[in-house]
C-alpha cells in the first residue's frame, strides 16, 4: 500500500519536474531571444503556468483531492471560485511578504508580483489541489506532526523547500559581482524553483526512509473540533467575540 503510494508520488513528481524543464525549453521555439535571464518574466510565467496546469491535471487524475460531500454542480463551482480566490489572496500575501522583506514598493512591482505568482503556484496551488480550499485542513497539515498521508508530508516538504529556496535566493543580491542573475527577482525565482525541484526529489525519499510518520494514529483532530474553539466558542475561554469578527470559513463549515 505504502510502496504503491510512494511509487505513485514518484511518478507524479517526475511529471511535475519534467513540466518545469519543458516550460524552460519550449518557449525557445516560440519566443524570439528567449533566455532565462533576458526574458525572465516570460520564463517565470511559463514555468508557473505549466506547473499549475500539470499539478491540477495530475492530482485530478490521481484523485487525491479530499472527498467532497456533495456532488452538485453549484458546490463544485463554489469550490472552484473559492480556490481561485485563495490563490489570488495567496499571491497578494506573498507579494506583501516580499515587499516587507525589502523589495521596492512601487517600482518593479510587476517583477515582485510575478515572483509572488510563481511562489503561489509552487506552494498554494498544490495545497489547493491536495487539500481543497479549506483553511482547517491547511492548518492541520502545516502544524507540527499534522501530516496524515504521504501526500500531506510531500506537501509539507515541497512547500518548505520552495519557500526556503526563495529565501536563500535573496542572499546573492547584495554581492557586487554584477552578474545577470543578480537582478531582482531572478535569483529568488530561480531559488524557489530549485527548492521546489529539490523538494520533489526529497519528499518520496524522506517518506521512504521514515516509515514511522504514517504509522501514527490520527488522534483527535483539528479537522473536527477545528479551530473554531479558538474563535471564542469554547467555554474554557468563555469570551465570545463579537460575531462580526468571526471568520467566514468558520461560520460556513463547522460552527
Amino acid at each position: 500500500m505504502r510502496d504503491l503510494e510512494i511509487k505513485g508520488m514518484v511518478s507524479a513528481h517526475a511529471i511535475i519536474a519534467s513540466s518545469i524543464f519543458v516550460a524552460t525549453v519550449m518557449p525557445l521555439f516560440f519566443v524570439d531571444n528567449f533566455s532565462i535571464y533576458g526574458t525572465h518574466l516570460t520564463w517565470l510565467y511559463s514555468v508557473s503556468g505549466s506547473v499549475s496546469v500539470v499539478n491540477i491535471t495530475v492530482f485530478w487524475l490521481l484523485g487525491i483531492s479530499p472527498p467532497t460531500k456533495k456532488h452538485t454542480l453549484s458546490y463544485k463551482v463554489s469550490r472552484a471560485v473559492r480556490s481561485c480566490l485563495y490563490f489570488i489572496l495567496s499571491c497578494l500575501l506573498f507579494h506583501a511578504v516580499v515587499v516587507l522583506y525589502g523589495a521596492p514598493l512601487l517600482e518593479s512591482a510587476l517583477e515582485t508580483f510575478s515572483l509572488a505568482v510563481l511562489l503561489s503556484s509552487l506552494t498554494t496551488l498544490r495545497c489547493l489541489c491536495v487539500l481543497g480550499p479549506s483553511v482547517q485542513a491547511w492548518i492541520r497539515v502545516f502544524s507540527r506532526e499534522g501530516a496524515m498521508s504521504v501526500w500531506d508530508t510531500s506537501l509539507q516538504i515541497t512547500t518548505a523547500c520552495s519557500v526556503i529556496g526563495a529565501w536563500l535566493g535573496a542572499f546573492p543580491i547584495p554581492l557586487d559581482w554584477d552578474r545577470p542573475w543578480q537582478v531582482w527577482p531572478i535569483s529568488c525565482s530561480l531559488g524557489a524553483t530549485f527548492g521546489f525541484l529539490t523538494g520533489l526529489v526529497i519528499a518520496p525519499a524522506w517518506i521512504h526512509w521514515h516509515p514511522e510518520v504514517l504509522g501514527r494514529s490520527p488522534g483527535p483532530l483539528l479537522w473536527e473540533s477545528g479551530m473554531c474553539d479558538t474563535f471564542g466558542v469554547r467555554p474554557s475561554i468563555g469570551l465570545p467575540l463579537p460575531s462580526s469578527s468571526r471568520s467566514p470559513c468558520c461560520l460556513s463549515r463547522c460552527c
Binding site: S143, E145, G146, T230
Partner: peptide
Amino acid sequence: LNTLCLAVFQDVCRKYFRERRG
C-alpha cells in the same frame, strides 16, 4: 529580523490556534 518576525508570528498562531496534538 523579518524572518524572525515571521517565525514569531508562526509561534503566536500556533499558540492561539492551538494544536490539540501538541
